[in-house]
Amino acid sequence: MEIRATAFKYGDDINTDYIISGKYKFKSTDMEAMAVHAMEELDPRYYEKVKPNGGFLVAGRNFGMGSSREQAPLVLIHANTKAVLAKSFARIFFRNAINTGLPVVECDTDLVDDGDDLELDLTAGVVRDITKGTEIPFAPLPPVMATLLADGGLVEHFRKHGGFAL
């Protein structure tokens, strides 16, 4: 599966309060409405930049640190984020992303600049930077996570198999 979109680049230690503030997440379960606040603390224009044509959220170390809120990957998905590329992820965010169907890729994001045109090939395990003409390889997901992502997330996995089939 290949996905092509623009890179929107941010820094290290982006926590879940920055992805979606607690003051919004308790108000509703309407993710479409909450998505306009995605990444608001760091970039108030994230939604309007990414929503129309989609984009890759590119970050440094420890992306998604902090709370267990699943609203974090959900608002990114509803803001039309195609995948998150980071040097490393906080573990709860990483699981939540897989469970909700948001691809997450651990790779050397120093090689990508804001605005680069990227193509993500999850099967081949490579990010192609079309702007720069370079390739960034990454290790594939562990089989359990790849299965869940291929099924479309944990809910779809349960619907398909009637429980865990890992």
Partner: peptide, 28 residues
């Protein structure tokens, strides 16, 4: 809830998960 790790203090392996993981655990 991410602070579920609190009960490690009483020798429980407790860890925070998201809502879908929590739902799967409640079901299965």
């Amino acid at each position: 809830d991410s602070h579920t790790c609190t009960y490690g203090a009483v020798n429980v392996f407790s860890t925070g998960v998201g809502s879908t993981d929590g739902a799967a655990a409640m079901a299965a």
